[in-house]
Write a protein that binds this DNA or RNA. Structure first.
Length: 215
DNA sequence: ACCCAGGTGGCCC
DNA sequence: GGGCCACATGGG
């Protein structure tokens, strides 16, 4: 099953309003992208809520924050020792190199921004791509565990490496940030609702594929 | 008492 | 380059 068909099927099932990433600012997307690493979104919400109440959802504020304070605030998201540091590191980087100005940060070739993000400790390909797509509106597709699971089942493939699966999409679907936002959101939605971890999902959109054990 | 969640980096071979 | 492992909280 091709990516474009998967997209069509998911969209028919879940609708089109998934442009998604619950955040009130671009910086909040960045914060959420780091906090959600291997963590349920529910827990991320609690951490972001703490940051908001403490008026810390701000590049400058976090860049100057006391590490112990930051750890306390993001604690519900788990891995709080490393995540607090990662948040402060990227904020400091944005302040030092871009004067905290995200317009300037994002206003250049995508590969250049991506490389810079990947240089930072704690920012891997998925986090970088989520930031590029949802905070920078760049035509980049984040590939998460859900994407691996769904695509490998549906296509009877066995993608293992990030760039490989991402490349598969890039070759088979048009590069468009609106489409990518929706596609990624739909894959997450599908994995979270109908098709849980190891489902035999009878009611799912891709029921035919499920039944034939491709999913 | 398990298992999992919108990953990443370090270490070992 | 691939295969483990630690990192940590909260919900099912």
């Amino acid at each position: 099953m091709q990516p474009s068909m998967i997209y069509t099927a998911l969209r028919r099932q879940y609708g089109s309003n998934h442009s998604w990433w619950p955040a009130k600012s671009r910086f909040e997307v960045i914060v959420g992208a780091i906090l959600t690493q291997n963590t349920a979104w529910r827990n991320v919400e609690a951490a972001i809520s703490n940051l908001r109440k403490a008026k810390m959802l701000d590049i400058s504020k976090i860049s100057q924050a006391d590490l112990a304070t930051l750890k306390r605030l993001v604690r519900p998201a788990g891995f709080y020792n490393q995540k607090a540091k990662r948040l402060r590191d990227i904020s400091r980087h944005l302040m030092a190199k871009w004067d905290g100005n995200l317009d300037r940060f994002f206003n250049r070739p995508v590969w250049q921004i991506r490389d810079e993000l990947l240089e930072l400790n704690g920012i891997g390909p998925e986090t970088a791509d989520s930031i590029l797509l949802y905070a920078g509106n760049k035509p980049v597709l984040p590939v998460d565990t859900y994407t691996f699971r769904i695509i490998n089942r549906l296509s009877k493939s066995n993608f293992r490496k990030y760039e490989e699966l991402q490349g598969y999409f890039y070759k088979n679907i048009c590069h468009n940030s609106r489409l990518f936002k929706e596609l990624h959101a739909l894959l997450v939605e599908h994995a979270k609702t109908t098709c849980k971890t190891k489902p035999i999902c009878r009611q799912c959109v891709l029921a035919g594929a499920c039944a034939s054990r491709k999913l």
